[in-house]
């Protein structure tokens, strides 16, 4: 194991905990994603250890650790914590220097962030207290339809005539989906309807935050092609998604750790 300094970002979200390790040049050494579970302190520790193992370094070798996400105060190893708004903006602008806005849809909240020409946060909007139309909503719907979450977005692309889901409240939407199933609607059309429902809810945030293109989509839901396509249709502009949208917040946190030195 080398003694070169390492910089870590740990993003403890409501659904998953993510860690990204950087070397002193800002190059990514390793990234990890695990389920957050019920013990956030433990999840933070485990995702950091997992990333360290992957990189072949000791977790104690971190020169600075920035914690972010809903469980940021539970990260024992943190040097300091920074909100996920700042971290997602930082990560997105490092991956896409031309970015002028970020849409992050995570496990329990969604955010629309407007960036200035230098990539700094200009404005942001977050969803209200409830988790309607977020990753948690997709999980519940996938379980109801007996579809793997990873297949969800792809299936939406096969829809011929998406149904209308009028609510992103998980409880209301669930009963709407059951009504569509009872009418023997095509599953792909229902899935596309759910993706459209999420997109139109997030579009409300995006309009309030007056997002300008190019827009980057981050967070776990950005892996869902159906939601991304529906957002693009509403925004009227293409959206860019990173290869690993889930770890953008942790990556941004790691960059802030590096810059804080």
């Amino acid at each position: 194991m080398s003694d070169a300094p390492i910089y870590a970002g740990v993003d403890v979200g409501s659904a998953t905990a993510k860690a990204v390790l950087l070397d002193a040049t800002g190059a990514v050494l390793a990234a990890s994603v695990i389920a957050s579970g019920g013990n956030l302190t433990d999840a933070a520790q485990r995702c950091l250890s997992l990333a360290s193992d992957k990189a072949g370094v000791s977790p104690d070798a971190c020169a600075a650790v920035i914690a972010t996400g809903y469980g940021r105060e539970r990260v024992a190893a943190r040097s300091r914590s920074v909100t996920e708004i700042t971290c997602h903006a930082r990560g997105a602008r490092a991956l896409f220097p031309e970015a002028r806005s970020v849409v992050d849809i995570g496990g329990q909240d969604s955010k629309a962030i407007a960036l200035d020409e230098r990539g700094r946060v200009l404005r942001f909007e977050m969803n209200d207290k409830c988790a309607a139309g977020t990753g948690r909503f997709l999980e519940v719907m996938a379980r109801l339809l007996e579809i793997e979450l990873d297949e969800f977005g792809g299936r939406a692309m096969h829809a011929a005539a998406p149904v209308t889901i009028s609510s992103t409240c998980t409880v209301f939407a669930e009963s709407e989906v059951i009504s569509h199933l009872a009418r023997n609607q095509n599953i792909d059309d229902i899935i596309a309807g759910l993706c459209n429902a999420i997109a139109s809810r997030v579009y409300g945030l995006a309009s309030r935050a007056r997002l300008a293109p190019p827009t980057i989509m981050t967070g776990g839901v950005a892996r869902n092609e159906g939601v991304v396509k529906a957002m693009e249709a509403l925004l009227g502009a293409p959206i860019r998604t990173p290869d690993d949208p889930q770890t953008v917040g942790a990556y941004g946190a790691a960059l802030l750790a590096l810059e804080s030195e």
């Binding site: 909100t83 708004i85 700042t86 700094r120 946060v121 200009l122 942001f124 977050m126 207290k129």
Partner: peptide, 17 residues
């Protein structure tokens, strides 16, 4: 409620930046 904390902290980070 606790959720407001993230918004306020992010706003302060934004002002500071």
């Amino acid at each position: 409620p606790e959720q407001l904390r993230t918004r306020v902290e992010a706003f302060v980070e934004m002002l500071r930046e």
